Simulated assay, not measured.
Amino acid sequence: MARHAVAASTGRGRASAAAGGGGASAPIRRAGSALPPPQAGFTLVEILVVLAIIATLVGLVAAFIPVAMKQRDVTKTQSTISAVGIGLETLEVDREQFGKYPPSRLKDLRIRKNPVGRDLGQANDINTGIECVYFLLNNPEVKLDRDLPVADEFKGNTDEDSYRTAKGNASDALAREYLDAWQNPLVYIHNADYKDTKGCDQVKRADGTLVTVRPKKSTAAAGGGFKRPNSFQLFSLGPDGEQDPDEAEEGDDILYGE
């Protein structure tokens, strides 16, 4: 009887082991200790594609920035030239104030028949036209009916000259000029001097070099005559600081009235 009981017990143990997976006990997992499922990462090809797209965008932005900055400077210069030009037109219309356009040389300037230019003295023969314009538009003896919206950054004295006296020129005797966005003086030439610019054809740029200027002409196809023949020429030499040839189809000079 004892042997039969042991055999039965052994049989039940084997059956239990077989039911449990061949004798190996299953591992016990505690709650919250399950391993997270593996996550998919970027492949090398995907990373290279993203880097290529970023490089392309950076290149496009880098190429656009200089163009945008140049256009910004052109717009600022156009605004300055427009403001100064309107001031000159106002002087010409107002017969009681001045009644004409300023001369190209300060020594020829008269206010109500008073030779103020002769009294002040011509500082030198550089930047003379635009210095005369600046002096007149900022002279307290000549009152414009509007304020010129020209920022201080577009006012300067590139040739560092001065008059003999501060009379009529605010608080000092500096012979200032209106500047473009590249800090070069604007060019002003009265129509009476178109054919002979001696004494008013030298401009000193921001880098200290001198450049000879001349009245601008239309292309041969357009007749070849002087532009704005009955008034004056007011223009910027543009980003390159050089006057465009008259026959240039696409120049960078900026002329008042165009």
Rank of each mutant, 00 (worst) to 15 (best):
M1G: 09
R3V: 14
H4S: 13
V6T: 12
V6I: 14
A7S: 13
A8P: 10
A8Y: 11
A8T: 13
S9M: 12
S16L: 11
A17E: 11
G20N: 12
A24I: 10
A26G: 10
A26L: 13
A26H: 12
I28A: 10
I28T: 11
I28R: 12
A31L: 13
A34I: 03
A34V: 08
P37L: 11
Q39I: 14
A40K: 01
G41Q: 11
G41L: 15
T43S: 15
T43N: 09
L44I: 06
E46Y: 00
L48R: 05
V50Q: 10
V50I: 08
V50R: 04
L51R: 11
I54K: 01
A55R: 08
L60M: 14
L60I: 15
V61L: 09
F64N: 07
F64R: 11
Q71Y: 13
Q71G: 14
V74M: 14
V74C: 08
T77Q: 02
T80N: 09
S82P: 03
A83W: 01
I86D: 04
G87W: 01
L91E: 01
E92V: 03
V93W: 02
D94F: 15
Q97T: 03
G99I: 00
K100T: 08
Y101R: 07
Y101K: 06
P102W: 05
P102N: 11
P102V: 14
R105L: 13
L106F: 08
L106S: 02
L106N: 03
D108F: 08
R110Q: 14
V116I: 15
G117C: 10
L120K: 15
N124W: 07
I126W: 00
T128A: 05
G129C: 06
I130Y: 07
I130C: 05
C132L: 00
Y134T: 06
F135K: 01
P140K: 11
V142Y: 05
V142L: 15
K143Q: 00
L144V: 07
D145H: 11
D145A: 15
R146L: 03
R146P: 06
D147I: 08
P149A: 13
V150W: 14
D152L: 07
K155I: 10
D159Y: 08
D159C: 05
D161W: 06
D161M: 14
Y163Q: 02
T165S: 13
A166C: 02
N169E: 04
D172M: 07
D172R: 08
A175E: 02
R176E: 04
R176F: 08
L179R: 01
D180V: 01
A181R: 01
W182P: 06
N184E: 09
L186A: 04
V187Q: 03
I189D: 06
H190I: 07
H190E: 05
N191I: 03
Y194P: 07
D196R: 05
K198D: 11
G199A: 05
D201R: 04
Q202E: 10
K204D: 03
R205K: 15
D207M: 08
G208Y: 09
L210H: 09
V211I: 15
R214A: 07
R214N: 04
P215M: 09
P215W: 00
K216E: 12
K216L: 15
G223E: 06
G224I: 04
K227S: 07
K227H: 00
K227Y: 02
R228L: 13
N230Y: 08
S231H: 14
Q233A: 02
F235I: 05
S236G: 12
D240M: 09
D244V: 00
E247Y: 13
A248S: 10
D252H: 13
D253N: 14
L255P: 06
Y256F: 14
G257P: 04
